[in-house]
Design a protein around this nucleic acid. Structure first.
Lengths: 333, 333
DNA sequence: CTGAAAGCGCTAACAG
DNA sequence: CTGTTAGCGCTTTCAG
């Protein structure tokens, strides 16, 4: 059996109450007694049972974090940001990996609730999870996902702006024929926003009739899309790729077709593939400050649970940034 | 306030005890009462407080997982394997991110212990963390790290074999002048083992005097090492790079120097950089089955905590595998 | 088959 | 300044 507060009390010849106060730095204990108790507690290697404390205080030191894929570094970078903030408040993270599965997500949310956690940070599968949390009246913050019509605290990156920035960069370089290769996914509207940003940038240049959007589910379809485009009579001079996994396929096929980047074709990738800076040429990207998204979300949740923020839901919109590398240049000719 | 077992008991007009038994599927409740209780519990949206349960049963449903860097996908892939196994037993993961900092690791280990967790899976910073856990008599399994002389349950990949496989592959292709570019780190002996595998392979071919090992702390030093090597009179025809981040620097510099892969130089990377398959040429790698390492570790921990395994510590050694892509071929000439 | 009561380890309220 | 007592929500005796 582990050492309990009572064991310490007996050894120190005081009441458990006094031990509790001494160890928690509360008033009502003489310095002498406090020191003695702290010394004895250390000697006995006493470690408070935080489950018991949580029970008594009716709130636990856990925060739930549910993500779509724990194996994806996009999420773990955000978790890193979360972790840094929560660490300062001695809060622990309970991880849930939904694998983009509604039932699995629900399972983890239930578990988190069962631990009486302070709140939940979630990158949700679809709105059902959020509705559940709302119904359970637990504070939560949505991470880097568009909640559509569902109002709640959230921190996200302006996806529209990502598409806009990428397209604008190519337009500024003089490109007029720019294609957007989109990542299509069932629930996610974030990618649609990127397309909207693309369209908006074209519109501003009066090029709305030059818009060409292709949608791909994965890298494989990215390859096929490139083949398809290069079978046509004329080819674009610029491509914006909406997401990294699709980009992998696109780049592979472009390389196979021996299309020269950036002399024949300029390429911008939305996202932060780890290989963007390693490839030759390095790829121009639109990157999100992932750790910042995580830390902002954690702070927002803490402020909410601590009552520092009350009332209306808050949306923090974090900016993405254009990182120019070698895959973009002026159009040929 | 959340719905408690007592609320359900009152509504169902039975004792809390009966509710507990009914909901936990224990005997001593008539089917009729059980059904009624289950129905009422659902209606009331009752959810057991697992903290209270844990207190009473004196064991919690948590498992601690401490890793060196949560932002690194190597670890999160292992976590994914862990998660899949623990999910089946309805256990929750408490994450600790040590950031390779002994104090931070210790902090998280203490927290995990405070939750009365079943056990801990850890990729440790150095042996002090392990000694602490041993002293606390908590079951733990070490993840993908060489514990050196410290005996304990562990699951790891044979690092020696990784170095051996990489070198052997080049030797089989006919290379004789093979350089090893090593990742050097303060605590980690895993990379040293990879060097040993390299040396062993050379020895088997009577090439021990051809061994050249360079050590780098990071990508930057990887670049410099390449410059250094290519200033010499003769250059190797094959390179084994011990780790992915060093590899990034090495590859960048090789590209800058316009060294043709694989015609002039063959390259094998130990590890699983995400870009290995995307680059042209794709890089031949020695890869670890990371999810498997995680799931094996989780199973081992469960077996240990459940008493299915008793006595001596177990080391599972998982095999790595050679993935041949385009960066390796016969030596020039 | 069911209920009453004890108690897990801790903190908060109240008393001295 | 310190101690006594109650109780967080649950499961586990022990009685009926």
């Amino acid at each position: 059996m582990r050492v309990t507060i009572e064991d310490v009390a007996i050894k120190a010849k005081v009441s458990v109450n006094t031990v509790s106060r001494a160890l928690n730095g509360k008033d009502g204990v003489s310095e002498k007694t406090r020191e003695k108790i702290i010394r004895i507690a250390q000697e006995m290697n006493y470690r408070p049972n935080i489950l018991a404390r949580s029970m008594r205080q009716n709130r636990s030191d856990f925060v739930g974090v549910s993500v779509l894929d724990i194996g994806n570094s996009v999420f773990t970078k955000m978790i890193k940001g979360i972790e840094k903030v929560l660490m300062d408040d001695s809060l622990s993270i309970i991880i849930g990996n939904s694998d983009e599965d509604v039932d699995k997500e629900r399972h983890y949310l239930e578990t988190m609730l069962s631990t009486n956690c302070r709140g939940i940070i979630i990158s949700h599968v679809n709105s059902s999870g959020l509705k559940f949390l709302r119904h359970e009246r637990i504070p939560f913050v949505v991470l880097d996902r568009d909640t559509q019509k569902f109002e709640c605290d959230q921190v996200y990156v302006d996806n529209n702006k990502m598409g806009y920035l990428a397209t604008k960069h190519l337009l500024d370089l003089g490109h007029r024929d720019i294609v957007f290769i989109n990542k299509e996914s069932e629930f996610d509207t974030d990618h649609r926003r990127r397309v909207e940003g693309y369209l908006q940038a074209l519109n501003e240049h009066g090029l709305q009739n030059m818009a060409h959007v292709y949608s791909c589910l994965d890298a494989e379809q990215g390859k096929k899309t490139v083949q398809e485009i290069w079978k046509k009579e004329t080819q674009p001079t610029g491509i914006v790729i909406g997401q990294h996994s699709v980009a992998e396929g696109v780049i592979m096929m472009l390389t196979q077709l021996r299309i020269k980047i950036p002399t024949e074709l300029s390429v911008v990738i939305i996202g932060e593939p780890s290989w963007a800076s390693i490839l030759t040429p390095g790829f121009t990207t639109i990157e999100r400050p992932l750790e910042l998204v995580g830390s902002k979300a954690a702070k927002l949740l803490l402020d909410r649970t601590q009552g520092k923020i009350k009332g209306d839901y808050i949306s923090y919109v974090v900016s993405s940034s254009l990182v120019v590398r070698e895959s973009t240049g002026p159009p040929p000719g």
